[in-house]
């Protein structure tokens, strides 16, 4: 086996470097979808490369080594064993990530009557969350509605509805699972999370015909929650970026950035394919030996 089998494990780092820049340059919609697709390709290539490495343990089967001792051993056994362990770990954390995203939504969704699509919660903490499902709901706290003016409330609702309409939870779950499989993809996941918010901001701005209004609603809600939630550097930065982007919309430059994403993801997939053909050759050597 050649180096090709290791490429899919490392290439996601390149994608991670590109992710933040790509997000700003592609625009929210293309960026979110593009990065998610590139991320899941990279994660799939990772799993496949690990599987190929683990499968090289095949020649250690008693029946094989008894039949033809001295078969070529393409990778050291410890590498193969590590790969096998990594697959189990990756699968485990992907499942856990999916579960962690779904379980609060399931808990929050209630069967009580909704006003339109809104379920009100009597709680002082300003909070608005989209709860995907059939039908989609928006959980809104009294703290949030009292914080905002009527038009700002409409902006929040339009934002959350955009999440529901465009099924953003699916993109987020996919990007989350990809990052759980290969931790090098975490920056990609975080960029997708940011771009989904930007996408919903833009939809709200278009629907209400007022970018400033949405910027104000985002800023107000974020400032009001500052003392309550532990400050997470990443997320805070995200809010500032969102407000900035609403004030002066960045002009997306799609062409070259999209090409870079496609090339990186395609390289990971290509490396996986080369590694596969290497493996087939190896398998052939084993079986005819």
């Amino acid at each position: 086996m050649t180096y090709a089998v290791y490429l899919p494990l490392i290439l996601p780092a390149l994608l991670a470097v590109a992710a933040r820049r790509a997000g700003d340059r592609l625009g929210p919609r293309n960026g979110a979808v593009g990065l998610t697709l590139a991320g899941i390709c990279a994660a799939a290539a990772t799993v496949w490369a690990l599987a190929l490495l683990a499968l090289t343990l095949f020649d250690d089967l008693p029946s094989m080594s008894a039949r033809a001792p001295g078969l070529p051993e393409p990778v050291p056994d410890w590498v193969a064993l590590t790969a096998a362990a990594a697959i189990i770990l990756a699968a485990g954390s992907a499942v856990q990530d999916l579960h962690q995203r779904r379980s609060p939504v399931r808990l929050l969704r209630s069967d009580q009557a909704a006003a339109g699509d809104v379920v009100m919660a009597a709680d002082d903490e300003p909070l608005a969350v989209a709860l995907p499902g059939r039908p989609g709901r928006i959980l809104l706290t009294t703290g949030m509605v009292r914080l905002l003016g009527p038009r700002e409330r409409s902006a929040v609702l339009a934002h959350e509805r955009a999440h529901l309409t465009h099924r953003h939870h699916l993109l987020m779950a996919t990007a989350g699972a990809a990052a759980a499989i290969n931790p090098l993809l975490r920056p990609v996941r975080d960029s997708v999370a940011y771009l989904i918010e930007r996408w919903a901001d833009e939809e709200a701005a278009t629907e209400l015909g007022d970018r400033d209004l949405v910027a104000r609603a985002v800023a107000k809600a974020a400032l009001a929650t500052t003392d309550r939630t532990p400050a997470l550097g990443v997320h805070g930065g995200v809010v500032v970026r969102r407000v900035r982007a609403l004030r002066c919309p960045p002009r997306p430059v799609t062409g070259r950035t999209m090409a870079a994403l496609v090339v990186t993801a395609a390289t990971a997939v290509a490396a996986a394919i080369i590694a596969t053909s290497d493996f087939v050759v190896l398998l052939h050597t084993w079986l005819v030996a």
Binding site: R101, L127, A215, K220, A222, L223, H235, G236, V240, R247
Partner: peptide
């Protein structure tokens, strides 16, 4: 990390920047 809230969790510095923007 698991729930997509409307906007939350600002650091102190970010809060300053945001107030300035407002």
């Amino acid at each position: 990390a698991v729930l997509q809230q409307f906007a939350a969790g600002l650091g102190a510095e970010d809060a300053e920047v945001l107030r300035a923007l407002l």
